[in-house]
Design a protein around this nucleic acid. Structure first.
Length: 479
RNA sequence: GGCGAGUUGGCGGAGUGGCUACGCAGCGGAUUGCAAAUCCGUGUACACCGGUUCGAAUCCGGUACUCGCCUCCA
């Protein structure tokens, strides 16, 4: 078996990976907060750790247990619900919250399916683990690691001397640089909320401290400890979660279980920029998976783009990159279609590349090599290990309805006739028309073959505007 | 202000001491009515300044610039 090596955020170094229990790997990834469509940043995390999951399954088989939570209690969700809530109506705010979270979970499943992200073994919802969270908080209170103040329960950072070690920052620095308003009831400004009171409208649960809801970090501790144990192998998430989320999770979990180490290996994916700028709602440059699939871009192309940069680097999302990867997916898809019966084993070089801290760019380079050498069997198996060209992520080829097929066939016949008469201007005009609509044609010895690309746009064919070639090969939808 | 990451050929992107990936684009050729697709060939780049070494993109020190986190964020 290839020796696995991962960069561990906890130590800041690349380390050999050995499971705590031989043959068994337990991993936890921070999943979505369900109040909005998944964007390409959410997708990057899901795809990267899906590759890790696939690699681990390839090496450890059924010994892998992968948990990815769903955060369905959160003030962002409450804020969204408040926007939609009609206070005169029959629904309570909590009902609206439930509608939003359920709908968003469906969207998330749909979007992840489009990207061929495998469903984790367990997808616990935070609201199903409220008793576990309360129990955990009680234990922290008993141990003197937390205190109650004005209906809140707060974690006392001063009670945990290692606080800040994980994210390599000192509480003093955090305090000095804090931009947050400091709640007066905190003993230390850096103390964070374990439980907070809910007003009568907000979702809330009865607790020893009154009706309230959990703070942001406690859910992940409660769920991972319950489902994976006090010591497990891998905890994954986006780099922006290192502080405060993961720092706080570690503090809570270890203090609640003295002597435990919580997660042994911590892996964080780099964040994503769009055209060189941070992707954020305030900048209005958030790209959702739905935005892309609505434009006819295949899940496979999105997935390949997300994997084309090493997971720890920041990734700049550009149209050029997406187009390049769309072309690559279409090319490989074409090879697979032309060689449906080829079988083979996953290339050992690809397993080796992935085993070395998930070096997906190197693995992709190997895919190119297999394609070039015509080793379609290995290509197919390797591509599947990366989750490309499987399931819904699709081939990049687009199915065309019958009526449109007939129109294309008729245009091709016209073109063939024109070519026969050596009227090449006419033939080329038809070819340009088809190209502008996203239909590629190939003249071969056996005649002309055609295929619709992901850019297929039937309106172009019907409008018939061969002079407008500016959009050929582009993603523009407005010409 | 604190912490961290990055700077590789036209673009993207691997690579932790010698063999200098890979993709896209470009260029030349084959093929083609012309194309597309395909195939063949073609690319000595590592921000800057010092240092270590027989030898550095790769190690060490410094400088510059870019970006991110520290606030909800994946």
């Amino acid at each position: 078996m290839a020796q696995l090596r991962f960069h561990n955020t906890k130590t800041g170094q690349k380390e050999e990976f050995e499971p705590i229990e031989p043959g068994r790997v337990r991993m936890y990834a921070c999943g979505p907060t369900v109040y909005d469509r998944a964007h390409i940043g959410n997708a990057r995390q899901a795809v990267v750790f899906d590759v890790l999951f696939r690699l681990l399954r390839n090496l450890y088989g059924e010994g892998v247990l992968y948990v990815r939570n769903i955060t369905d209690v959160d003030d962002k969700i409450n804020a969204r619900a408040l926007e939609l809530w009609n206070s005169d109506g029959a629904q309570s705010l909590a009902d609206v919250v439930r509608v939003i979270t359920n709908e968003t979970i469906e969207w998330y499943r749909e979007d992840m399916g489009a990207l061929s992200v495998l469903t984790p073994d367990l997808e616990p919802r935070a609201t199903e683990f409220i008793p576990e969270m309360i129990e955990l908080i009680l234990r922290l209170l008993e141990g003197g690691f937390a205190y109650v103040a004005e209906g809140h329960v707060l974690f006392s950072v001063d009670a945990y001397s290692a606080y800040g070690d994980f994210s390599r920052r000192s509480p003093e620095d955090m305090e000095a640089g804090a931009r947050v308003e400091i709640a007066p009831y905190k003993r230390n400004p850096v103390d964070f909320v374990l439980w907070k009171p809910s007003d009568s409208n907000e979702p809330g649960w009865d607790s020893p401290w009154g009706r309230g809801r959990p703070g942001w970090h406690i859910e992940c501790s409660a769920m991972s400890l319950k489902l994976l144990g006090n010591n497990f192998d891998i905890h994954a998430g986006g780099a922006d979660l290192i502080f405060p989320h993961h720092e706080n999770e570690i503090a809570q979990s270890i203090c609640a279980n003295p002597g435990s180490e919580f997660a042994r290996y911590w892996m964080h994916n780099g964040l994503l920029t769009v055209n060189g700028r941070k992707m954020s709602k305030s900048l209005g440059n958030v790209i959702t998976i739905k935005d892309l699939t609505n434009k006819g871009i295949s899940g496979g192309a999105i997935r390949l783009t997300l994997l084309s940069t090493h997971y720890r680097q920041s990734l700049d999302w550009t149209e050029t990159k997406l187009e390049e990867n769309t072309r690559a997916m279409e090319r490989w898809a074409g090879m697979m279609e032309d060689a449906p019966n080829c079988t083979g084993a996953v290339s050992p070089e690809i397993v080796a590349a992935l085993s070395d801290d998930l070096n997906t760019p190197k693995a992709i380079a190997e895919l190119h090599r297999l394609a070039k050498e015509g080793d379609f069997g290995s290509l197919k198996a390797s591509v599947e290990l990366l989750g490309l060209l499987t399931g819904e992520s699709g081939t990049g080829r687009v199915q065309v309805e019958d009526g449109m097929q007939n129109l294309i066939e008729r245009l091709l016949q016209e073109r063939a006739g024109a070519r026969g008469r050596r009227h090449f201007d006419e033939a080329d005009r038809i070819r340009d028309l088809l190209l502008s609509a996203g239909v590629e044609i190939k003249d071969g010895p056996q005649g002309t073959e055609w295929s619709a690309t992901s850019r297929f746009n039937p309106d172009r064919l019907e409008q018939g505007n061969p002079g407008d070639s500016a959009i050929v090969g582009g993603f523009a939808d407005d010409g």
